[in-house]
């Protein structure tokens, strides 16, 4: 006898599968790597932000991005391109005007959200692996509803990228004045290019530049810009990690040259 189709009657239970997950691959590797690398990076950045030393190479005008713009009264006068007005206290980083915005830009970034929700918050640790929490309300309530402010931190990040670009330009400085060019300039330039790529590949940027439109045909220029940002946006995750790397390397390079551990390779003056 065949069974005819019946209307669903009431709530039925799910399949009783004992194992929490049946995944056999190393699903825990990606969250583990994310936690390790992000923790390492945050530790390094915290130490450097509060170190208040070895951030400036007076001979060649190299300024590390962690201290840009240097606006504390404790800053070396030549490094302060934008004035010195913050009090020189050990608990206030020299770039305290920009660092919180950069932190919030990355904290509310759609890629980093994915990364830390999965790894630090285990919500979920990996696909088809159970969420570690009894209740879940996502980003519907305080405080996570403020993730929706991402675009404002994007605007801030654009301004900060302009400052970083300025730093990279004034760093073409020779010993004793005039034009100079060394390995440090290449390091700073690569960092700035990558920072721009990361900032412009932001999902909020993609929306603002053209994603919000309903009729691309009426806005050909914005459509082209949207196409460009969309291409970058596809690499947002890679750029997020690359910029963490270039920021750390740039800072470490400036620190090493400032401390005299290595000498800058000069191509010209």
């Amino acid at each position: 006898m065949t069974t005819t189709a019946t209307r669903p009657a009431g709530q039925r239970p799910r399949a009783a599968i004992a194992a929490k997950t049946l995944r056999t691959d190393r699903w825990w590797l990606a969250p583990l790597l994310t936690v390790s690398l992000l923790t390492l990076w945050v530790a390094y950045a915290t130490v450097r932000a509060f170190m208040q030393d070895l951030y400036w190479v007076p001979d060649y005008h190299y300024l590390t991005p962690f201290y840009s713009p240097c606006v504390s009264t404790g800053c070396a006068p030549e490094s302060a391109e934008f004035g010195r007005f913050l009090p020189n206290w050990p608990i206030i980083p020299f770039a305290a005007v920009t660092l919180p915005f950069l932190l919030l830009f990355r904290l509310t970034c759609y890629y980093y959200r994915r990364a830390y929700y999965r790894s630090f918050w285990a919500s979920p640790p990996a696909c088809a692996v159970p969420d570690g929490h009894r209740n879940y309300s996502g980003e519907t309530r305080f405080p996570l509803i403020f993730q929706n402010a991402h675009r404002y931190f994007f605007y801030a990040a654009v301004l900060i990228s302009l400052i970083n670009t300025w730093d990279a330009i004034v760093a073409f400085h020779g010993k004793g004045g005039g034009f100079g060019f060394g390995l440090g300039n290449i390091v700073l330039l690569v960092n700035v290019v990558m920072l721009w790529a990361y900032t412009l590949s932001c999902h909020s940027c993609r929306h603002i530049i053209g994603g919000r439109l309903k009729h691309f045909s009426k806005h050909p220029v914005r459509y082209r810009a949207w196409g460009f940002v969309s291409k970058l946006n596809g690499k947002h995750m890679q750029l997020a990690w690359i910029t963490l790397g270039t920021l750390m390397l740039t800072d470490a390079y400036v620190m090493a040259v400032a401390a005299g551990w290595i000498s800058d390779l000069r191509f010209f003056h």
């Binding site: 959200r113 929700y117 696909c127 996502g138 980003e139 519907t140 993609r206």
Partner: peptide
Amino acid sequence: GYCNITKCCTEVCPEHIKITDNAIIPMKER
């Protein structure tokens, strides 16, 4: 707002639709 963009939907899509990047995040931004 419940979606926390952990992108598992995009990972499993057999049609390779960029669900998170092209639909959910644009809708969130809208």
